[in-house]
C-alpha cells in the first residue's frame, strides 16, 4: 500500500483547476491592456489606492466588523447558556441553532426582504399603531442585519463547542477556592473559550467582507461593497485586470487573517466547525 499513484488524477486536477487559475489571476492583475498590446504594470494596484476604491474597502471592512461584533455580543451569551449543564433538551436546542444553516443563504436573505420592504410586514404592523412607514430596506442597517442573521450560527457553534469541552472540575475548583460566579467566568470560562471566539470571529468576518449577495439584495442596486466591486469589474465593466487585482488583494487579506487565527487555534486546541 506504499503507492501514491492513486493521487495522480487529483494532482493533475489541482494543476489545471487550482494552480493555472491562480496563475491567470496573478497574470491579469499585473498586466494592463494598451492599444499597442498587453504590458506588465502595477497600475491596477495603484488604481485601487484611489479614494473612491479605498472608501469601498473601508466600508466593507467597517460593516463586516460591526456585524462580527454584533454576532459576538448576541452569540456569546447564547453559547454560554447552551453549554450550561442544567439546560433541558440541550441536543434539540443545539440542533435548532444549526438548522437555519442548512437553508440556502439566498433564501434566508430573501426572507428579510419580505419583512423590511416598504409594504412589508413590519411597516404594516407599524402602520396599524399609527407610525408612518419607515425606510428599513436599502441602507447600512439592512445589510448589517442580513449579515448578522446569516452568520450568527457560525459564531455560536465554535464558542459552544469549546465551552462544553471545558473540564468542569476547573470551574468547581474555582468555586471551592471562593470565586464568585462573575470571577469564575472572567478567570476560567472566558480565557478558556477564547479559541472558540477566535474561530467564530474568523468564520463571521471573512464571509461578511467578501459577500456581494447580501449587499445587492438588502442594500439595493447602488450599494457597493468590495464583493460588488469585483463582480462589476468582471460582469458589467469588463475590466478583468483591475478585477483580478482587487480579488488578489482580498484573497491575501483573508489568507493572512486566517493564518493568524489558525496559528492561535493550534496553540490553544481550538474548536472549529469541522
Amino acid at each position: 500500500m506504499k503507492k501514491t499513484w492513486a493521487a495522480y488524477p487529483y494532482i493533475f486536477w489541482i494543476i489545471i483547476f487550482t494552480i493555472v487559475p491562480m496563475g491567470l489571476l496573478i497574470y491579469f492583475s499585473i498586466t494592463v491592456k494598451t492599444p499597442t498590446g498587453t504590458i506588465i504594470s502595477m497600475d491596477n494596484f495603484r488604481r485601487f489606492t484611489e479614494p473612491i476604491y479605498l472608501k469601498v474597502l473601508a466600508r466593507s471592512l467597517t460593516l463586516a466588523a460591526i456585524s462580527t461584533v454584533c454576532c459576538l455580543l448576541l452569540g456569546y451569551p447564547a453559547a454560554l447558556f447552551l453549554s450550561s449543564r442544567d439546560l433541558r433538551h440541550k441536543n434539540t436546542m443545539v440542533l435548532l441553532m444549526v438548522l437555519p444553516m442548512w437553508m440556502n443563504f439566498l433564501l434566508r436573505t430573501y426572507a428579510w426582504l419580505t419583512l423590511l420592504e416598504r409594504k412589508g410586514l413590519i411597516n404594516t404592523l407599524l402602520g396599524k399603531i399609527g407610525i408612518p412607514p419607515l425606510n428599513l430596506l436599502y441602507n447600512d442597517f439592512a445589510v448589517v442585519l442580513g449579515m448578522v442573521y446569516n452568520f450568527l450560527p457560525f459564531m455560536v457553534l465554535p464558542i459552544y463547542s469549546v465551552l462544553s469541552k471545558i473540564d468542569h472540575s476547573l470551574i468547581e475548583a474555582a468555586e471551592d477556592l471562593g470565586a464568585d460566579p462573575l470571577r469564575t467566568f472572567l478567570k476560567v470560562r472566558l480565557p478558556l473559550s477564547l479559541p472558540g471566539v477566535m474561530s467564530g470571529i474568523t468564520m463571521v468576518f471573512m464571509p461578511a467582507v467578501t459577500t456581494f449577495v447580501i449587499s445587492r439584495l438588502l442594500g439595493g442596486g447602488q450599494y457597493t461593497l468590495i464583493g460588488n466591486l469585483i463582480e462589476q469589474q468582471f460582469l458589467t465593466v469588463g475590466d478583468w485586470n483591475f478585477g483580478s487585482a482587487i480579488s488578489l488583494m482580498m484573497m491575501l487579506i483573508i489568507l493572512i487573517g486566517m493564518g493568524f487565527t489558525s496559528r492561535y487555534e493550534k496553540e490553544q486546541e481550538g474548536g472549529g466547525l469541522w
Binding site: A7, Y10, I11, I14, I16, F17, T18, I19, V20, P21, M22, L24, L25, F28, M206, P207, V209, T210, F212, G227, I230, E231, F234, W240, G243, S244, S247, L248, M250, M251, I254, L255, M258
Partner: peptide, 24 residues
C-alpha cells in the same frame, strides 16, 4: 504541498475561487 493546495479553495473567498475558474 498537496494538502496546502487542497485547503486553498476551502479557505479562499468563494468569489475569488469563482472568478479564477471563470478566467480559466
Amino acid at each position: 504541498t498537496v494538502m496546502n493546495l487542497t485547503y486553498l479553495p476551502v479557505l479562499n473567498p468563494d468569489i475569488v475561487t469563482g472568478i479564477s475558474f471563470m478566467l480559466l
